[in-house]
Amino acid sequence: MRLYWEVFRHGYRRWATYRAATAAGVFTNTVFGFLRAYVLVAVFAASATIGGYDRSDALTYVFLGQGMIMAVYMWSWWEIALAIRSGDIVTDLSRPFDYQAYWLAQDLGRACYHAVFRGIPPFVVGAIVFDLRMPESPLTWVLFAASVVMAVCVSFGVRFLVNLAAFWLLDYRGVGAIATACGTFLSGFVVPVAFFPGWLAVIAHALPFRGMIQVPIDVFLEKESGGALFVMLAVQVGWAAALFAAGRLVLRAARRRVVVQGG
C-alpha cells in the first residue's frame, strides 16, 4: 500500500513540475469555456429550457466540464502504448507490483493535481463572468467529489484498455482517435446527453462514457435525487469496476503474448 501511495505522490509531482504548462492549460480550458458558453447563450436566447436544462444549468455545465476535462483526462494518454512499442513494457511487467494498480495510483495522483490546479480556476472564472448554479445541499458537494473520482476511474479504465491495444496494433493512434471521438461526444462533454434525441440518448446511456463527464455534472446540478441519484452513481461505479476487470483480462492475455513472443 505504501508503494502505491508513493506512486500516487509521484503522479502528482510529475505534473506539478510544469508550472508554465499549468498556466497555459488553465488559459486554454477557460478560453474553450467561453467559446462554448456563448454558443449556449445564443441557444437559450431562443429557447427557455432544453432537456430540463435552463440557461444557468447549461453555463454551469460548460464550466464544470472545462474544469473536469483535465482531471478526467480523456485525451491523448499514451504512456503504456509507448512503453509497449519501445519494448520497455517487458521490464515494467516484470516488476514486483500490480501493473494496473500502479498506473491507477499514478493516474489518481495526476488527477488530483489537475482537479485542483486545472479544474478550479476555469470554473471560478466562469462563475465570475456568468451566473452559474451552485448546489443547494452541502451533501451534493461530497457526492460530486466522489463522482469525479469515479469519473477518473472510468476514464482510466477506458484509457488503459485503449493503450493495451498497442500490443496487437503497431500504431495505436487509430483506436485512439475512435476512443477520443466516442469519449468526447458520448460522455456528454460537447453537448449535454439530455439534449440528445432519443436514439442517441439510448446509445449514450448504454455505454460507459457518460460516467466520465455527464454523471458528475448532473450530480452537481442536482438533476436527480433519491433512488434515481443512487442508481446513476451505482451505474458509474459499476462501469469503473467492469472496465478494471476487462483491463486485467486483456493485460493477462497480453502478458502471455509477451512471454510467448519474447516481447
Binding site: 495505436y172 487509430g174 460537447v190 442517441l200
Partner: peptide
Amino acid sequence: LSFALMLIGYFVMTLADFLAIWVI
C-alpha cells in the same frame, strides 16, 4: 490496418463535431 482505423477514427471525430451542431 492502423491507417484504416485512423481514417475511421477521424471520420467519427468529424461526425461528433457536427453532431453537436445538429443536436442543438
